[in-house]
């Protein structure tokens, strides 16, 4: 603090701190505090807000367990909202794992194997599709994956059975992996470029086969990038709304769709706030899990 003042003067320091404080307080803490506070209150007509019935309650959270509609999951019959909540987390993890499985080899190739002159070109090719808005790209997948769409036509041409892609979670998985792949790719790519080639060669020279080189040298080196990519993709996937709405089917609801319905169709902002807060908690748990699993610090993930 004193260092900042000495370096930039009192006025500039005040501006820096003021802007940061405004960001943190007004744009992060304030809305979240309001949301959390709202989530513990009943959904009441305007005239009763502040009245004797406006008390703190767990009812919004408990509404998750409402038993009017049930669904089977792994042999248990559970309320449908809980089912959606759990499948959303599960498929977000699947999306994250798929992204990591695809992005790592790609990042390895671009960081270590591709001829240096071609790398900027290849990275441009990866980025160019991102110039198109997410909405249009998702619609494009809607067309590609349609039952009479190009993908099935192609499969018929090579003699394969047509597949109903937009059924269950297939379309959602494809769409999300496509949309979020780069958020996994870039952190891994960045961490792999800093890996000394001599370390790879040293491992090979000591007798390591290629997968051992990855398991013992390259992946441990890239773990900060992998965990940061996993965190981002998971948070985007859990909070995604566009892809599940366009590429989902009636049998594949996403938890964000439940929140939107509660908010705009039921107009029950209090319950929606409770559900949103749950989603936030899931993300926090996931980040801490990542830090545990990869033994990295928050500063590594935030890189």
């Amino acid at each position: 603090m004193r260092g900042l003042v000495r370096r930039y003067g009192l006025a500039l320091t005040a501006i820096f701190i003021g802007i940061s404080a405004f960001w943190m307080l007004a744009l992060v803490w304030l809305p979240y505090s309001i949301m959390v506070e709202q989530s513990f209150r009943h959904y009441l007509p305007f005239s009763q807000i502040g009245g004797p019935t406006d008390v703190y309650t767990m009812a919004n959270y408990l509404s998750l367990f409402e038993t009017s509609a049930m669904k089977d999951l792994l042999g248990f019959t559970i309320p449908i909202t809980v089912y959606i909540f759990l499948t959303t987390i599960f498929y977000s993890i699947v999306v994250t794992a798929l992204c990591a499985a695809l992005a790592y080899p790609l990042a390895w190739y671009l960081a270590k194997r591709a001829p240096v002159q071609t790398v900027p070109m290849l990275i441009m090719l990866l980025i160019i599709p991102m110039f198109v808005s997410e909405l249009l790209r998702t619609y494009a997948w809607f067309i590609l994956l349609a039952f009479s769409g190009p993908l099935n036509v192609l499969m018929e041409l090579v003699g394969l059975q047509k597949v109903r892609w937009i059924a269950g979670y297939n379309g959602v998985l494809v769409g999300m992996v496509y949309t979020y792949l780069l958020f996994m790719f870039f952190p891994i790519y960045n961490s792999l470029t800093s890996l000394d080639n001599n370390q790879v060669e040293a491992a090979q020279d000591l007798g390591a086969k290629w997968w051992t080189v990855h398991r013992l040298v390259a992946i441990p080196h890239a773990k900060a990038g992998i965990s940061s990519g996993c965190t981002m993709v998971f948070m985007f996937a859990v909070g995604s709304i566009l892809v599940p709405q366009l590429l989902g089917s009636p049998s594949s609801r996403w938890f964000t769709e439940v929140i939107i319905r509660t908010m705009f169709e039921s107009q029950d902002w209090n319950a929606a706030a409770a559900y949103s807060f749950l989603l936030l908690l899931v993300c926090i748990v996931f980040v801490s899990l990542m830090m545990r699993v990869f033994r990295v610090h928050l500063s590594d993930i935030a890189k």
Binding site: N198, A202, D205, A208
Partner: peptide
């Protein structure tokens, strides 16, 4: 290189920092 009876010591040593 992983099958040759040689061991290479690199100029920057290339020890595994982790």
């Amino acid at each position: 290189p992983n099958k040759r009876p040689t061991s290479l010591i690199f100029q920057n040593l290339a020890l595994f920092p982790l």
